[in-house]
Each structure stands twice: as C-alpha cells, then as structure tokens.
Design a protein around this nucleic acid. Structure first.
Length: 270
DNA sequence: AGGTTGACCTGTACGC
DNA sequence: TGCGTACAGGTCAACC
C-alpha cells in the first residue's frame, strides 16, 4: 500500500490527531523494525508537542517543539491505526496524546523503519542524501528525467523505481505511469527521447495527483479503529489487471522483472 | 560504475 | 480441514 500517495494520505490523516498535541506517551514495543529503533526515541518524544507533519519521498515526518523529527517508513505492510480498541502483536509503536487519542504503528512484515533526528539535520539523514526530486515538486521535469536517464541502459521500469531518479514511486504507480505514457516497461532509459520523457513526467504527476485526491476524498475514513483505510478504490488501468482488456481492447499482460510483477499493455506501450 | 539478484519478514489466497 | 506454494505496495547489501 504505501507509495507516495498513501504516505501523503497517511500524513493528512494523522494531522488532525497530532498537530499541536503534546505526546503524553511514546512507547516502542520492540527494539527494531527493518533496522534498530533509536534507543532514545521514547525519551526525546515524550512530553514534546507536535508542530508539523510532512512527507519526503515515502517517509512520513513528524516535527516537535524540541527540534526533533520522528521519521517513519511504512515498508510494504505498515499503517497507522487510530484509537485501536486492542493492541495486537504487530503494533510496534504506541502513542498517546495529551487529549487521550491513541495511535499504533502496525507493520506485520517489519520492512518499515522508525528514526529520530534533529529537524535541522534532516537533509543529512542518510536515506535522504541521495534521493531524487519530489515528483510533484518544481524540480521534477522532463529535463531532469533526461539528465537522470542519460546513458542508462537499465529498463525504464527499474529506473523509475530507483529513488535517486525520482523519489516516491513504487511498483503500482510506475506501472500506471508507464501505461498512461505509452512506454514499454523494458525500454532502455537512454532510448527515450524528450517528447516521450515529457509525456512520462506528466503521466507521473497525473497518476500521483489523482491517487492523492482519491485518498483525500475519503479522509474521514482514516480514523476507523480497525485501521482499514477504505480509500484504495482500484481505479488502476494496468496494475493488477492481467487478462482484463486495456482501454484499447488488448488484454493486459503480466510479467516478472527482478522478482516484481509488471503489468502492461503490449499494444499501447512501445 | 551500472545493472541485477536475493534477503529481510509475515500474512493471505489458492490448488490439491 | 490441512498442507504446500506463490505472491504482496520497499529497501539494501552483495554480486557480476
């Protein structure tokens, strides 16, 4: 679930619960997820007030009045549960706010992460150092793609999954953007000219924007205690649609690249 | 250096 | 019902 639009929607859903609130308790339930959870995370957050929630790539950022930022990554299976009735085995971090709201970071596969860094030092946080531009920001253009893909022989699908090229795309939205742009996933990066790169950049922006909008339109569902988000209406044109007709009528195909499924239309995507 | 592969974890869906 | 297999939205280290 968690690619850029899902993290963005998560941040927007957490905002009404956390923004301006004092963190009455912050309780890691295990020492690590994908990597160790900083031992001082609890102490640095407890009693602090949340001043801002934002996002970089697929990372959620929670700033506090003490000059710290908690950084969470949802991995493959992470989500925040709001006011859960019970705490389960995969609730790895518990938070209670000054007004008694409770949050649980739930992540069965534990591919996610939790970190805390000084807000001023965010740019130096190791996973951020080499990230490419935000796809919905001003630096992301066809020109940027041209520079990033110059001389690259790897397939465009792999290049778009590389967070150094552009930050925040995952398997679903790469498939969707390539389908929308009419580019075959196996095309070598260096073989894509400016006209198609321009189409690709706009497709990426459009796919992400509409996914965020779809999430945002049902944000009130976020706070359901079961944690089900309910807004993943499957409006995908290619992803998960093997055998179903593309808008051109040709059945969508699925293949495996580097262990990941790729969905594409063999007629529309060249 | 760039490109590719496998490992990390658990849950779920499906075929027999 | 039970068992085995395939697969899942992400990174990152280790290899050619």
């Amino acid at each position: 679930m968690p690619e850029l639009p899902e993290v963005e929607t998560t941040i927007r859903g957490l905002e009404p619960v956390l923004l301006g609130q004092r963190l009455a308790s912050v309780d890691p339930r295990r020492p690590d997820l994908r990597r160790p959870i900083p031992a001082d995370l609890r102490q640095r957050l407890t009693g602090a007030t949340v001043t801002r929630l934002h996002r970089r790539a697929k990372y959620g950022l929670i700033d506090t009045s003490r000059g710290d930022t908690m950084i969470f990554h949802l991995g493959m299976s992470g989500r925040w549960r709001v006011d859960p009735e019970e705490i389960g085995t995969h609730d790895h971090l518990l938070i209670e706010t000054g007004e008694g709201r409770r949050l649980a970071l739930n992540d069965p596969r534990r591919f996610g992460s939790l970190d805390i860094v000084e807000t001023e030092a965010l740019a130096g946080f190791a996973p951020f150092v080499r990230l490419g531009p935000e796809p919905l920001g001003p630096e992301f253009t066809a020109r940027h793609l041209a520079a990033a893909l110059a001389g690259r022989a790897a397939p465009i699908k792999a290049l778009l999954l590389d967070q150094r090229v552009v930050a925040g795309l995952g398997n679903i939205y790469v498939c969707e953007a390539l389908h929308m742009a009419g580019i075959a996933p196996g095309t070598m990066g260096r073989r894509i000219g400016m006209v198609r790169l321009d189409r690709l950049a706009r497709a990426i922006e459009a796919v992400l924007a509409s996914a965020i909008e779809a999430g945002g339109s049902s944000l009130r569902d976020f706070a359901r205690p079961d944690g089900e988000l309910g807004y993943f209406s499957k409006q995908w044109r290619a992803y998960g649609r093997e055998g179903e007709p593309c808008h051109c009528g040709t059945p969508i195909r699925r293949r495996t690249d580097g262990g990941r499924s790729t969905f594409y239309c063999p007629r529309c995507q060249r």
